[in-house]
Each structure stands twice: as structure tokens, then as C-alpha cells.
């Protein structure tokens, strides 16, 4: 079969991902999650946590909620609608770690959960650190 013919068919008749819809949902859900984060932050501040240190417990709380939703089996349903809106904030990171931890539990705590946990999130850590290093270097030089 002619590959070009099939490529052409794909271009003309193959459905495309609904880009505009996905972007709008990502914007709304991402915004809601960040607003929710701000609410938690404000609660911690009102409880007496200094403003500069309130960020860490806030992130931990959001991670805890995302991990719980993953364990309850509803995170993937939300993410199928919210897309990047829930994947880009720390919720996505929490989900990728938790889902791997649950998935590979049967293969053992050390050889399964422990070693597979960061298989999806690992690249975020690696490139996050590399980016931070490069940006740090640039800011030190300027």
C-alpha cells in the first residue's frame, strides 16, 4: 500500500485532537487549582505560618490531595477533561509518582514501588534541576 496515499488520507480524514477545547479546559482547571492553592496558602498564613514559609505546607497539601485522588481512582477521570490544567501544576507530578507506586506494588516494595515510582516523574526532576542550574549560572554571571 502506498504510504503517501495513507498519509494524505490521515491528513484529510483523520480526526485531530480538539486543541481549542483542550486549551480552554486547561486554562479553567489550571486556574481553579492555583486559586485553590492560594486559598490553602491564605489559610496557613491566617494560622500563623510566616508568609515566606507558607508555600511549603501549601504544596504538600496539594500533593496530598492529588495523591489521594489518584488512590481513590478519580484523578485520571478528572485529568481526561482537565488535561494540562491538572498535569502542569504539582498535582500532575504527584499523580505520576503515586500512580506508578500503586501500579508496581505487586512487583515488591523495593523492586516495584521503590524503583518504578519515579519512572515517569524522573525526567521532570532531571530537567528541572538542569534548568535550575543553567538559569542559576546565567543569573550569577549577569
Amino acid at each position: 500500500m502506498d504510504r503517501n496515499w495513507i498519509n494524505n488520507w490521515q491528513r484529510l480524514k483523520h480526526p485531530k485532537p480538539p486543541l481549542i477545547k483542550n486549551i480552554i479546559y486547561a486554562f479553567i482547571f489550571g486556574g481553579l487549582i492555583c486559586t485553590f492553592g492560594q486559598l490553602i496558602l491564605n489559610i496557613y498564613i491566617s494560622l500563623g505560618v510566616p508568609q515566606q514559609e507558607a508555600g511549603n505546607p501549601t504544596v504538600a497539601t496539594v500533593i496530598f490531595i492529588a495523591a489521594s485522588l489518584t488512590a481513590a481512582g478519580v484523578f485520571d477521570d478528572i485529568a481526561s477533561i482537565a488535561g494540562a490544567g491538572i498535569a502542569v501544576p504539582v498535582t500532575g507530578f504527584a499523580n505520576s509518582v503515586t500512580s506508578m507506586a500503586i501500579e508496581f506494588r505487586r512487583e515488591g516494595l523495593v523492586t516495584g514501588t521503590g524503583s518504578k515510582m519515579f519512572a515517569l516523574a524522573g525526567s521532570v526532576i532531571v530537567f528541572g534541576v538542569v534548568t535550575a542550574f543553567v538559569v542559576g549560572l546565567i543569573s550569577a554571571l549577569i
Binding site: 485532537p17 488512590a71 485520571d76 505520576s96
Partner: peptide, 17 residues
């Protein structure tokens, strides 16, 4: 899913096709 794609509870958007 776990072998070919992602863990079952991993949240991502499928492309619709």
C-alpha cells in the same frame, strides 16, 4: 495499559482517536 502505555491511574488526555 501498564505495559504499552501508562499506569492505570495516571491522568492524561487521550487524543480522541
Amino acid at each position: 495499559e501498564r505495559q504499552f502505555r501508562y499506569p492505570t491511574e495516571y491522568g492524561y488526555q487521550k487524543p480522541g482517536y
